[in-house]
């Protein structure tokens, strides 16, 4: 219970920080608007561009309320972002192009397909690495090296090249997602498949279990507690991959497209609401895997 209180305190801290940052971030525009309207504003010597935002805020306290309701603020107020979130999720039809749910679903499709591909590939690779010495010695360093390459940099190329051979839409994005999510799964599964001790392996040997039986009855169940944390990392990475995959083609739909359109047209509130939408989707996905983890591990007897 005290943990919950602590989380609330930290969140409240973030909230206060955000609220406090809004007036100085948006003050310059507010001051210049007020000046144009002929209102009394306190200005420093010289140009308004050179004035410090904090100084302006402290000298013009009357203008502070206005900074929370600007149409295109540099930093939107929390209330504006949540109003936009509410409006674009609950306030619109789900099939509408302006509904955030519609865009989130487009991104989610690519995320899930990529996650399934990446996880499948990762598990297969891990099985190969654990059972085959040639793969073990020659492949693992490349899997590690592949992650030091910023694959996201290659994303535009993958998408454009696949476009030129006629594959568009979901699949290129899913491939980027898959690439990002396969590595955590490989690492976790290799560790997990190797986790049974010598004693346990020897026991199966005394039962004269075949390699196949050892795999199904010992190695795979032992690997599951390692697999689930990897899946959590993997699905979060998948979502990032799908979002970034939408950027380079100037996609028309998806959370990444919302970010890009928002940044082209200076719609900061839209960017922030897309960002929070992405965060909510990520949290939901990680949460679902967490529930699956609890249920599976409890049934297998790992739970406490």
């Amino acid at each position: 219970m005290r943990g919950g209180l602590a989380i609330l305190v930290v969140l409240a801290g973030f909230w206060l920080l955000w609220m406090a940052a809004v007036p100085p971030m948006n003050m310059k525009w507010e001051v210049s608007q007020a000046q144009r309207a002929g209102a009394e504003v306190v200005l420093p010597e010289g140009n308004i561009r050179d004035a410090s935002a904090l100084w302006l805020t402290l000298r013009n306290p009357g203008l502070i309320p206005g900074t929370y309701v600007q149409e295109k603020p540099r930093l939107p107020a929390p209330a504006q972002v949540f109003a936009e979130l509410w409006d674009t999720t609950v306030g619109k039809r789900l099939s509408s192009k302006r509904s955030l749910v519609y865009h989130a679903w487009i991104t989610l499709e690519a995320t899930l397909l990529g996650f399934a591909l990446g996880t499948g590939l990762g598990i297969l690779l891990a099985v190969g690495i654990v059972h085959n010495r040639v793969m073990d010695a020659s492949f693992m360093p490349w899997a590690i090296a592949s992650q030091t390459i910023p694959i996201l940099a290659i994303a535009p190329m993958i998408i454009v090249v696949m476009n030129s051979v006629g594959i568009t839409g979901l699949v290129p994005k899913a491939i980027i997602s898959a690439y990002l999510s396969f590595f955590p799964v490989v690492v976790g599964m290799v560790k997990g498949l190797r986790s049974p001790g010598l004693m346990q392996l020897d026991l199966l040997k005394t039962y004269s279990a075949s390699g196949w039986q050892t795999f199904w009855k010992l190695r795979l169940p032992a690997a599951l507690p390692y697999l689930f944390p990897s899946l959590k990392v993997g699905i979060a990475a998948s979502l990032v991959g799908a979002i970034v995959g939408e950027l380079p083609t100037g996609a028309v739909a998806g959370l990444g497209a919302r970010l890009l359109a928002g940044s082209y047209y200076g719609q900061t509130v839209q960017i922030w609401s897309a960002l929070f939408g992405a965060a909510i989707v990520a949290a939901a996905l990680v949460g679902i895997i967490g529930i699956a983890q609890n249920m599976t591990l409890r049934r297998m007897g790992f739970g406490r």
Partner: peptide, 21 residues
């Protein structure tokens, strides 16, 4: 106790989305 779960949560977020901002 509050910072650890919140930080863990935020570390898994698509923070790359803050790039346009």
């Amino acid at each position: 106790r509050g910072l650890l779960p919140v930080g863990n949560f935020l570390a898994a977020m698509p923070i790359i989305g803050t790039a346009p901002i």
